[in-house]
C-alpha cells in the first residue's frame, strides 16, 4: 500500500515536472520581439553573411531618419526551393535569389509585378558574381580553360542543372564557350557538353553540396563554382586549392525584388523599397565586395580590382535570349540537358 502511494506521488511529480517544462517553453516564446516593423528577406544559400552585415548597416541608416529601427528575418536555401516556398505562402517581403528566372516564377503567380526587373537600377541587380574553376593545389592536371575539362582522366564537380541555379550558370558558360570555340556549330557544342558530363562523377543538388564534395570529401580535380563561393572558401581554407580564371565566363546576375502583395499586406512597402534601394549605396556596395560579391557600381568595383580581376563575360539576355528562352532550349523536360544526360548517364 505504501509502495503504491509512493508510486503515485512519484508519478504526479513526473507529470508536474513535465508541465513546468512545457509552461517554461511557452512563456519563453511568449516574450517575443517588440512591435517595430520587421522584414522577411527570402534569399539563396550563400548570402547569409552578406545580408547579416547589410541588415545592421541599413537598420542604423534607417533609424537616423527618426523612424524606429526595423528588425530583419532571414531565410536561406536553394534558390528554386525558396521561390517555391514563397509561391506556397511563405510571406517574403523581399526576394534576393540566384536567378531572375526564380523571381519570374513567383511573379507568374501574381504576387509581384511581371516587370519587377525594371523597378530598380541595372535590371534589379545590385551585386552579382561570375563562374570560375577551382583546382587542386598546384594545378596537377594543368587545367587552364573550359577545353581542359573534357580531357580524359579529369574529374569535374558541378551540381545538377535540374535543381541548382549555380549549375545552370555553369552549364551555360561551358556551352557558350564551346559555341564560340566551334564557330557557332551547335552540334559540336553539344558534343563538348556530352564529353564534359562524362567526366562528372557526382551531380549534387546544389552549389554548397558540390563545394563540400570537392573540398571536404576531396572528390574530383576541378570544381565549377560561383566566384563568391570560391573566394570565401579560399579565405577560410585556401591551402587546399587554386583558383583558375577561364578565358570566358558569364555575368551571374543575382537580382532582388520586393513582393507587392506581401508588402501591401504587411504594411512594409516603404521599408522594403528603401531596403533594396539601399543596396546600391556606396557603403552597401563596398560591403557586398567585402563578402565576395561583385558590386555593380563601377567605381566600387574598380577599387576592388585586385579581388575581382576583369574577365570576359557572356550575358544571359544578349547571348542566350533571356531565361525563358534558355530554359526552354536547355533545361526543361526533354530539352538539351535531358538529351545529354540520357546519352551520358544511361549508357
Amino acid at each position: 500500500m505504501t509502495h503504491a502511494r509512493a508510486n503515485r506521488r512519484l508519478f504526479l511529480k513526473t507529470l508536474t515536472g513535465a508541465g513546468i517544462a512545457a509552461g517554461a517553453g511557452l512563456s519563453l516564446s511568449a516574450c517575443g520581439k517588440p512591435a517595430a516593423q520587421s522584414l522577411l528577406n527570402v534569399s539563396f544559400d550563400p548570402t547569409r553573411e552578406f545580408y547579416a552585415a547589410y541588415n545592421s548597416l541599413f537598420a542604423k541608416k534607417y533609424a537616423t531618419g527618426g523612424k524606429p529601427a526595423p528588425t530583419f528575418n532571414q531565410s536561406h536555401g536553394g534558390s528554386g526551393k525558396q521561390a517555391r516556398a514563397v509561391v506556397d505562402g511563405l510571406k517574403a517581403d523581399v526576394l534576393s535569389l540566384a536567378l531572375a528566372h526564380d523571381i519570374d516564377a513567383v511573379a507568374a503567380t501574381g504576387l509581384l509585378a511581371a516587370d519587377w526587373a525594371s523597378r530598380l537600377p541595372n535590371n534589379s541587380v545590385a551585386y552579382n558574381s561570375t563562374i570560375l574553376l577551382l583546382v587542386r593545389k598546384g594545378n596537377p592536371k594543368g587545367i587552364k580553360d573550359w577545353g581542359d575539362l573534357v580531357k580524359p582522366g579529369v574529374q569535374v564537380i558541378t551540381p545538377n542543372p535540374k535543381t541548382s541555379g549555380a549549375a545552370r550558370w555553369n552549364y551555360l558558360v561551358a556551352y557558350g564557350w564551346a559555341l564560340r570555340a566551334n564557330n557557332g556549330d551547335e552540334a559540336k557544342a553539344q558534343a563538348y557538353l556530352e564529353a564534359l558530363f562524362k567526366n562528372v562523377p557526382v551531380l549534387d543538388t546544389g552549389a554548397r553540396g558540390a563545394t563540400t564534395t570537392f573540398i571536404q570529401r576531396g572528390q574530383g580535380d576541378v570544381l565549377i563554382n560561383w566566384e563568391s563561393e570560391a573566394l570565401m572558401s579560399a579565405a577560410k581554407d585556401g591551402a587546399q586549392f587554386d583558383i583558375v580564371y577561364p578565358s570566358l565566363s558569364i555575368a551571374a546576375d543575382t537580382p532582388v525584388a520586393w513582393v507587392d502583395k506581401n508588402v501591401a499586406a504587411n504594411g512594409t512597402e516603404a521599408l522594403a523599397k528603401a531596403y533594396l534601394e539601399g543596396l546600391y549605396d556606396e557603403d552597401a556596395q563596398t560591403l557586398a565586395a567585402q563578402h565576395f560579391y561583385r558590386p555593380t557600381n563601377a567605381d566600387v568595383l574598380k577599387s576592388f580590382a585586385d579581388r575581382f580581376p576583369a574577365i570576359e563575360q557572356l550575358n544571359i539576355d544578349k547571348d542566350f535570349g533571356g531565361w525563358t528562352t534558355a530554359n526552354a532550349r536547355h533545361f526543361e523536360q526533354g530539352a538539351l540537358f535531358d538529351q545529354i544526360s540520357a546519352k551520358v548517364f544511361k549508357a
Binding site: A85, V87, D88, G89, L90, K91, T109, A265
Partner: peptide, 24 residues
C-alpha cells in the same frame, strides 16, 4: 500540409483572406 494549407492549397485562399498562417 502544404497541399492543404499552402497558398495554393485547398484552404489556402480562405486562410489568406482571414490572415491565418499555418504553414511556414
Amino acid at each position: 500540409w502544404i497541399l492543404l494549407f499552402g497558398a495554393h492549397g485547398w484552404f489556402g485562399a480562405w486562410l489568406d483572406a482571414h490572415n491565418i498562417r499555418i504553414v511556414f
